[in-house]
Design a binder for these strands. Structure first.
Lengths: 347, 347
DNA sequence: TTTAGCACTCAGTAACATCGAGTGCTAACA
DNA sequence: TGTTAGCACTCGATGTTACTGAGTGCTAAA
């Protein structure tokens, strides 16, 4: 077990290192207000803390640097709560006072806020709204050969796709089909659309002509293909400001990782509604072994909608980032909740 | 004037440097097949070429490096035409064989193709279709308090925006208004929408109730706000592979430049339908002083729709890039043309 | 006019000394 | 017995010097 003094020293060292990015020496610590021991004492404690695996040296006569275990301990037990400055809080508030009435915009805006208020890269996953239901389906012919299909959900989300119409399909057929679909599918949760289509509806449609069948296939391809979850990334260049990314090679591997949307999406998705901190090697992905990822979820009532995250070096301002993520995830949930209430009752 | 021999030597030097990124020495040149002079002769010529400003030295005893003037001359007079490998050509073809029927997708795809086939960053501006006309306007109520407005053009482009409805406006009013708008605005070119709305239509609407007026204001804000032209960027990380961008500082300034969409858009827009090469300091923007930008336009008939561009270090494979841009811009124009024909006739 | 030859330049590298921030350890102190 | 002063030691960083070699410019001969 760690003594009070060790806890204090470890905390001060990590705080200092997070701030300065430089190995911390015993003398520097002994000079801190909070600490009233001589550098020699500190040195002894440091040696112990290193032996226990919380600190590391970059070379035999260097100051100490937190190990990943050190960060982990810091995050779990040591970190002092961060009070966001007024300016930051009002910056967040302002971002939400705009007439935002689309999920997409709120999410985009939030990503920007997160990266603007930190020196890290923000990643937001979602929103995946399980309660999203089909509001309306529409086909608008553009010519004899093409049309655009539009799908509107009760959350105001609009999905659209243009497609060419094979000659053998008449546009009136399409129209009829859309009418049928609208009747049958109104209010169906989007995530069940696919299934519902494949089971009931395709059966129903097949009772009509062959042309229907073909038209249906087209429509399905156009509108109901599995859509990957959206990823919003903000402040990609922030990473370049971190001294740990002076090495182009690191930057490259991290950037190309971020492009791998599927992988990121998988990484972000998380169960609990608590804030989760993943430090360095705790990350499954190699390219992130020098990074920490902090994730929080936003939700609609009990249902989780998505994840917001910040990606930075392991030397991260954990405390600040956690406060910020917490604030933002609440603010997002709140916003969505208020809409949804209206949407439900207002019909 | 330059002698034949000087032309040859300059060409070989620049070709070599583009390939190797290393200063080129006289000995290396004299060993090339095409060149049958001794290194001493080459040295003399090099000294002359340097005096004329086509070459530079990095230090007094280093090999030569092309100056910007050298590149300019190379691009204008020296470059040998590049034959794209079969594989590249078929790669481009394949990208266009998909069932692409939306401008956006074609453009996105093209940006990807460009960056995949080069080690540079691709930027595509547009499409700005002057012939785009309003096809249909729609308001779909989501609740008593909100609705989504959808605008569809004859090119299959869909624009949408959710908005909250103030209590004093009844949704049936909105509906009526949309009907009027649809009648009056059908077929109006999108770029004239704004004007038309402000002149004729608002007059017309004002003849109705006050509520109409308010609803109209809302709708206008929601749908017809000036939309900035879209920018598609591909292969941002490609820049990191270039040895001239080993310096993080350069990368950062370039990246933050690319984020300035308005500026980039302004830079890319270009008049002629020829391929335009801008080398180093010829660029107005400071952050691009070590870069070259090569732009080509794609069009619909005589009307230019937008610009495709590649951004890389001044040491660029000009020849290859020009061939590629030319191929792609043709391919894009062709594709759009074929749709548009259909769209026009098919009503 | 071309080229061989040679003196010269300078980035890059390696070897070596110096400096100083930091450590670990020991012995003295409260 | 816990704390601290003192000191020898370590090692990255920095600076000096010397050496190497790819490259040049110039001169003189072919």
């Amino acid at each position: 077990m760690l003594t009070e003094r060790q806890l204090l020293i470890l905390q001060v060292i990590i705080d200092d290192f997070i701030d300065s990015a430089q190995p911390v020496g015993s003398r520097a610590i002994s000079k801190k207000e909070k600490v009233s021991y001589s550098s020699a004492t500190i040195r002894n404690e440091m040696a112990d803390l290193e032996e226990m695996g919380f600190l590391e040296k970059t070379h035999s006569s260097s100051g100490r640097v937190p190990s990943e275990k050190g960060y982990r301990f810091y995050v779990d037990h040591l970190m002092s709560p961060f009070h966001l400055p007024r300016s930051d809080i009002s910056f967040v508030q302002e971002a939400f006072t705009n007439q935002l009435v689309e999920f997409e915009r709120v999410v985009q805006q939030s990503a920007r806020v997160l990266s603007d208020l930190t020196n890290y890269t923000s990643i937001i996953l979602g929103p995946e709204v399980y309660e999203t239901r089909l509001k309306q389906l529409q086909i608008i012919p553009l010519s004899n050969y093409s049309a655009v299909a539009i799908l509107v959900t009760n959350t105001g989300h609009v999905e659209h796709r243009s497609f060419t119409i094979p000659v053998e399909i008449h546009s009136s057929d399409l129209e009829k089909m859309v009418n049928i679909l609208n009747k049958k599918l109104y209010g169906v949760p989007i995530i069940h659309l696919h299934r519902k289509l494949n089971s009931e509806i395709s059966e129903l449609l097949r009772q009509h002509t062959d042309e229907f069948d073909k038209a249906y296939k087209y429509l399905q391809a156009a509108l109901f293909e599995e859509q990957p979850v959206k990823l919003y990334v903000g402040g990609k260049t922030n990473i370049l400001m971190q001294p740990e990314f002076k090495d182009i090679e690191k930057v490259r591997s991290l950037y190309s990782m971020i492009e791998e949307e599927a992988e990121i999406a998988h990484l972000l998705r998380h169960e609990s509604d608590e804030i989760k901190v993943t430090i360095g090697q705790e990350n499954e992905v190699k390219a992130m072994k020098d990074c920490s990822l902090i994730t929080a979820s936003y939700s609609l009532g009990d249902e989780q909608m998505g994840t917001i995250a910040l990606l930075g070096p392991t030397r991260m301002e954990y405390s600040k980032v956690i406060s910020l993520l917490s604030l933002l995830s609440n603010r997002m949930s709140q916003t969505f909740h208020s809409w949804y209430q209206n949407g439900e009752n207002g019909e």
